[in-house]
Design a protein around this nucleic acid. Structure first.
Lengths: 240, 240
DNA sequence: CGCGAGCTTGACGTTGTTCAACTAGAGTGG
DNA sequence: CCACTCTAGTTGAACAACGTCAAGCTCGCG
């Protein structure tokens, strides 16, 4: 995850913001006009975090929205007895618009950097203003929330109704197809964190990885992971 | 749950819609103008369901938004191997705005009547129109989604990180404080459904109810339920 | 070389499910 | 009114799933 140096906010305004806000038609920001962008870019802050740093902290008030420019981060809930529940891994151009821009709520999760991260903090008051003024943007934001919501419902069912094998299969497929999109991929997260994504103990996760390895479904090698038989994983995921 | 007879749409327009849309300042609809209301009421359909009927079905497309006028309904996901996961119980003036008004998505849950239910179906295309035209309404809707989202995160942690005792305590407190708001209350749902709210087997739910009964925390009597020691329940809920 | 953090493995105990039997109450037909 | 049936609720015992604990291992790093 190499970083180009010396890209402060002013330097990259033209390049980075355009990239975040326009080039990707999937982006929440794709519907903004040039004037809208000016509003957002006006006071945004481009900030860097080192691996391990906390980007947003659960239970603080949500004064900013964050847009990831580079790097990976985990989004997790700090639950009971120090247990964590990792909801997802976010990367380039992902967008964190937690709990309450709209009510004056607190965030319901913590975000922390898995690699070095570069991201923009945008004043949520400005997002709210755009939301009121540009209905296309409002609709995009609403879509974004709906998708998030439906992903949550999905994990809810996966975590409460599947056996451990199914949950491990789920996380492996998620990492391969939604996060890294390459086949042998490097894991920036520990076994403990993998377990935290699957709501189980790390020992259990390790044991099941080993089973998958001996049956030739995966080929783990330190922090790298290769999926050898995706069909099998999908089938395990479906059958619980 | 007695119903007044012969209240079709036209008859109750003035009474019911005003009640749904204005009298409750908590309502998503509280920010609508008179003209807005006309738009919504124009083609809304007031529909009755008997206990047990399906109001909205998972995986159908979300062409309508539903507003509960009378009665109770359960919102649940049809998960793996015929298992159900009950997300919440909704009642008077609650509002169901599932997955994708905004994308052309399918619903992610089923809603079915626990008692006789009277509710309004509103064309979601009209909601979308209002969303674009009235930014106050848009903000209210967004708040609504945020609250829903944060409730989901909460259940996610509760169901994955608590022991069964804590989960049973959670459902009992939820029913008393959020659904019925009276102390001895009548359960319109079976033990199986209680278990489906808590992600566990009905036998386990029954066993824990018995424990709570013998330790004097609750007094179950057939379908009625009385909370005798709420402090104890809260403590059990907190400690997992 | 030694140290420490994360990983791995096995043994064991606990939590929670499944299965089967039994009970209570509500409806049905004689 | 009494069998009969059917469903939901209840209980117990066996079993499987899963977590915890403790020990050994690997590998990078000083």
């Amino acid at each position: 995850m190499a970083f180009k140096e010396n890209q402060n906010c002013e330097d990259c305004k033209e390049v980075c913001c355009a990239r975040c806000f326009h080039n990707d038609s999937q982006s929440v920001f794709s519907r903004l006009t040039k004037d809208d962008l000016e509003v957002l870019m006006g006071n945004r802050q481009s900030i860097r975090f080192s691996s391990g740093e906390t980007i947003l902290k659960q239970n603080t008030s949500s004064t900013h929205v964050v847009c990831m420019k580079r790097g990976l981060a985990k989004v997790y809930i700090e639950g009971m007895n120090g247990k964590k529940l990792i909801l997802k891994i976010i990367g380039e151009l992902d967008f964190i618009c937690g709990g309450g821009i709209f009510a004056n709520n607190v965030r319901h999760f913590t975000v922390s950097a898995l690699t070095d991260v570069e991201c923009c903090f945008i004043d949520s008051e400005r997002i709210l203003r755009l939301f009121s003024e540009n209905s296309n943007f409002a609709i995009e934001l609403m879509k974004h929330h709906n998708e998030q919501n439906s992903a949550l419902l999905n994990t809810l069912v996966n975590l409460t109704q599947k056996y451990m094998h199914g949950r491990v299969a789920d996380t492996l497929l998620y990492l391969k197809n939604d996060v890294f999109r390459t086949n042998p991929f490097q894991l920036p997260i520990s076994r403990q964190e993998l377990a935290d994504m699957s709501a189980m103990a790390k020992e259990s996760y390790v044991r099941i990885l080993k089973e998958f390895k001996t049956s030739g479904i995966i080929k783990p090698n330190g922090n790298s992971m290769e999926i050898l038989n995706e069909e099998a994983l999908i089938s395990i995921s479906k059958n619980g």
